[in-house]
Nucleic acid binder design. Structure first.
Lengths: 234, 234
DNA sequence: TTTAGCATTATGTATAACATAATAAGACTA
DNA sequence: TAGTCTTATTATGTTATACATAATGCTAAA
């Protein structure tokens, strides 16, 4: 084997100043174990102690802000906030910008989530939740009648399920994906037309939640989402 | 009911200049339907045509860059790139920064994903994948022997499953969450100690993939992850 | 004691200047 | 003519300075 001439070269540091300052600040947050609500030094202070211009500090702080690590107020300075994982993500979640493959994949993700969360549902569902679900299906519109309203209703029902799952991160994930689902539904990305008839209805799912098991629910939901699966896998 | 005195007040626009420029640029990208690789005007041009300082334009561009919408090179200017949804997200995914509740929730998310992706697996798995999985379990270490190595092996096996699922977005999601899983495992966040014995082994899962059904796999995986569930729900 | 107004302070914005890296153009040589 | 080296150009990266603006806290007047 011929020796690779680039082998002995060290990796050059091509990162910009802002990159370094950003890394520095994150390191500071981690190592100092700063708690939510703590304030960090002002831009001018940081600029002085780090030996870079205020502009660079500002850009680094902007990044932290976008990551949801800090919230900066006038006069006060920047305070540490509970990081918002999905904050930025949802901003770049513009369906018009994402390419079709990604859209299809995100749509698949929904199916994965709703089938996979059965255990969480059964662990945390309360009688009150059951009542609320029943209330929701009571106002269920006729499938064939009003398509738009039907989609809205779908969102309400399934949204309630996410709520019951009691996982805030999961719920926010869904909330972020919602516009995508909507977009995919209306975009013609799904090949086959939706079948009107559902095998397992919303009402059926509630029955399972009340008297069944996670296993039954997974199959029920799988069945309920059958249409979507068929449309994706065509 | 007494009338609300604030009712007739219009919502003030508290957004900063940078906010507006950012929105403007995103709108530009969407409406012009610009394709990946297209270049957008230089900072100075934008600053002139938008009537704001270059500073503001720079900050707005920085945000777009963080969203993965553009990639800016010296001299060339900024070019549009395929948005990287998880790019920024993974940067703020520092386990040391996330609070414990969020960590627990993200860990739950893993369980949801791996149970929920059964259908994708069965749709896309190939004989070659089965072989590779078998190859992986062949080198499976003794559970009781080397704990660290055992975790590594877990990651390899389950990572392969994500790969088989054939959903790039899902895979990258998992990749992003990996450090979290690792951290949670080692952090003492999980209450009960792990049980050594697994009901359904990796080998068992492979058998199901080869001869079983999605339904069987979901239950198998549910069983396989039983330990994790118990530790979370305590 | 309350409130109106002022001072203070840190971020937001603007401008100008220079550094640096990537590209293009031109000149020079084989 | 082709190829390479040098130089010029251009757009981003960085610095410095100044002023605007909003939030906070203090002070004095009612």
């Amino acid at each position: 084997m011929t020796p690779n001439p680039t082998e002995s070269l060290i990796q050059l540091d091509t990162s910009s100043l802002v990159d370094k300052v950003e890394a520095n600040l994150v390191k500071l947050l981690v190592e100092r174990k700063l708690r939510v609500g703590d304030i960090i030094p002002t831009e001018l202070d940081l600029s002085r102690s780090l030996g870079v211009s205020r502009t660079v500090v500002r850009e680094a702080l902007l990044r932290l802000r976008m990551m949801g690590l800090i919230d900066t107020k006038k006069k006060k300075g920047s305070v540490i906030t509970s990081p918002d994982i999905f904050g930025i993500m949802s901003k770049s979640m513009n369906p018009h910008i994402l390419d079709q493959d990604t859209l299809r994949e995100i749509f698949e993700l929904r199916l994965v989530l709703e089938i996979g969360m059965a255990d969480l549902l059964f662990q945390r569902i309360t009688p009150k939740d059951i009542e609320e679900l029943k209330e929701i299906v009571k106002t269920e519109p006729d499938t064939a009648k009003d398509h738009i309203f039907h989609i809205d209703h779908e969102i309400i029902f399934h949204g309630k399920l996410y709520e019951i799952a009691g996982n805030e991160t999961l719920k926010r994930f869904q909330k972020m994906l919602l516009p995508i689902f909507d977009y995919v539904h209306n975009s013609g990305l799904l090949k086959k037309p939706a079948q009107i008839q559902k095998f397992v209805s919303h009402k059926g799912l509630i029955d399972i939640l009340e008297n069944g098991s996670p296993e039954l629910f997974r199959n029920g939901m799988r069945n309920h989402l059958e249409n979507h699966f068929l449309r994706i896998f065509s």
